[in-house]
Amino acid sequence: MIFGRKKRSIVRLLVVEDEPLVAFDTEYLLTGEDYEIVATVDRVADAVAVIADGQDIHLVLADLALGDGSGIDVARAAQERGIPVMFVTGNCPGEAEAFAAGCLSKPYAPRDLLAAIVAIEAAREGRRLRRLPNGFRLFAAMSTPVEPAQIAG
């Protein structure tokens, strides 16, 4: 495609965030970039219910520290349905790699959130990544080669 955008494979997202302002900003940013938000929830129980409902979800963005539990529980439910998860958190634990496609550190710039979603999409499609966004870790199970000189930290 010379003048058009490539069709995205990740379009429908579930946002799991218990900080209202962060949730609102995330939803506003993503809808402005033509992503569809399936739901924005602030509790593990609500996220698990949305996932179990069988909706078409392409990616879950999940905070780890939620009021009623851990984002890891959300990731387990998503993993059972084959839905990739990106943790968006201030402190990404070591065990996150077993449950998620990647982890974006808070605070993050809006462009880094968008670039992290694109990086997960590229990795799922086996495309080579030129660089990773600031504060983002793409986990080995998902990753495709990244050109070493282009890794941003």
Rank of each mutant, 00 (worst) to 15 (best):
R81E: 10
D63L: 03
A96I: 07
S70K: 13
C103L: 14
I83L: 03
G71C: 07
G69N: 12
P84C: 02
C103K: 14
A77R: 06
L64E: 05
T89L: 07
E80F: 00
A75I: 04
A100V: 14
V74G: 03
G94S: 14
A96V: 07
L64R: 07
L64I: 15
V88L: 05
I83C: 06
V88S: 05
V88W: 01
R81W: 00
T89R: 01
L66C: 12
A75M: 11
F87P: 09
E95H: 10
G69K: 10
G82E: 09
G90D: 11
C92L: 14
E95C: 04
G90I: 02
N91P: 00
N91E: 11
L66Y: 02
A78T: 11
N91M: 08
R81H: 05
A62D: 02
A100R: 01
G69L: 08
D68C: 13
A96M: 05
I83A: 05
S70N: 07
G82P: 09
R76V: 15
P93R: 03
A78D: 12
G94N: 08
A78V: 05
A100E: 03
I83W: 01
A98V: 05
F87C: 08
R81A: 09
L64G: 06
D68H: 06
L66H: 01
E95S: 13
D68E: 11
A65W: 00
S70G: 06
E97Y: 00
C92Y: 02
A78H: 12
R81I: 03
A100W: 04
G71K: 08
V88F: 09
A77E: 03
C103G: 09
G67Q: 06
L66D: 10
C92M: 03
A77C: 06
L104A: 11
L104N: 04
S70A: 07
I83E: 06
N91V: 07
A65F: 01
D68A: 08
D63R: 03
G71L: 13
A62N: 05
G82H: 08
C92H: 02
N91G: 04
G82S: 06
P84I: 08
T89A: 15
L66E: 10
A77F: 09
A100Q: 07
A78S: 10
T89Q: 01
E97G: 13
D73E: 15
L64H: 06
V74Y: 02
A62C: 14
G82N: 02
G102E: 10
D63G: 14
R81C: 02
I72F: 10
A98Q: 15
A98W: 00
P93S: 04
Q79E: 10
A101L: 03
A101V: 08
